[in-house]
Design a protein around this nucleic acid. Structure first.
Lengths: 163, 163
DNA sequence: CCTAGAATGTTATACCGTACCGAATATGCC
DNA sequence: GGCATATTCGGTACGGTATAACATTCTAGG
């Protein structure tokens, strides 16, 4: 049980209940914002919901389309502002290698983030592995470099797609 | 000497000789392409030269501007094609977090890449650390995930900027 | 209420990257 | 050399990503 808490979100299994984890994520976000004195407005909540509904990385302009089915006259800045807020509060992550966004599975605490992205089905697993974090920090320190943040993304094939 | 070869390129020191490492990089690229039976055309050589001349991550459209000072009628695809070739052959790396490109300091052999990017001066150090690679692979394997490639970028402050 | 700050609406534009097609150039074969 | 073939390059047009700047609306607190 040395690093049991490292896996924040495994790849979704076959019988995985989407609706349930969506509801859970929204509830957590609501609680978290209340606790931090922030406003999870209707817009922000809708964007977060659309992201979790996908349960895969989703692109900003895809969100824009979906949002337009619910609200009229939504323009890019509207989406990007909501994304900025959610990123800021650690409620979502940006997948750099895809220019896309995905819900964070453990937003209540700040944690290092390592993403495993399947190149077949685009499913994502999320790690918050302290051992990786520590090793990277140690290596950087060896060069006198002080790490502020890290982008760690592994592309490969998930267990489901390996069959 | 467990991991002495991990640091491929440290942050450039004060008295660092730009011209020399540019020349070295071009010579290496030339040798490497000859060895692989590939054509380091004038265009590709010029793009590689512009990237190394900067010695910092440089953006595609910045390269485009610089190229236009030497050639007439250069359009985006011209630059991107050259970049694709150089990326393919491991002669340069893409810095995902900046949408920019930087020369690889050890192109002769394929290696894992970890980049340390200074958020003050944008200087970059390059690691090819097998220990990091192995740890990531091991963690991924724990989830049944098979890693094909990785994007590892650390943002922070370099020793020079820390003063 | 009233007001200051936050959030959102709206327009326009900058930046990053690619599909596609045709021209030029290099390479291998006779 | 002359020819067919494949690679590379020029150039147009466009699509995807993101933000600047300013107007408007909403919200919380006095």
């Amino acid at each position: 049980m040395a690093d049991d808490s490292a896996v924040v979100a495994d790849f979704p299994a076959a019988g995985h209940d989407h609706a349930r984890c969506l509801a859970g994520a929204l509830a957590t976000a609501e609680a978290l914002c209340r606790h931090r004195g922030l406003r999870l407005t209707e817009l922000r909540r809708q964007v977060l919901e659309l992201i979790w509904a996908e349960h895969r990385p989703i692109k900003a302009y895809e969100l824009l389309e979906r949002l337009r089915e619910r609200r009229s006259g939504v323009a890019p800045p509207t989406v990007y502002r909501a994304l900025d807020f959610l990123l800021q509060e650690g409620l979502i992550h940006r997948v750099e290698s895809m220019s896309a966004y995905i819900g964070c599975s453990a937003p209540e605490r700040r944690h290092p983030v390592q993403l495993l992205v399947c190149r077949r089905c685009a499913a994502v697993a999320e790690l918050a592995d302290g051992e990786i974090e520590a090793l990277l920090r140690r290596k950087a320190q060896g060069l006198g470099f002080e790490v502020d943040s890290a982008t760690i993304e592994l592309e490969g094939v998930c267990p489901q797609c390996r069959g």
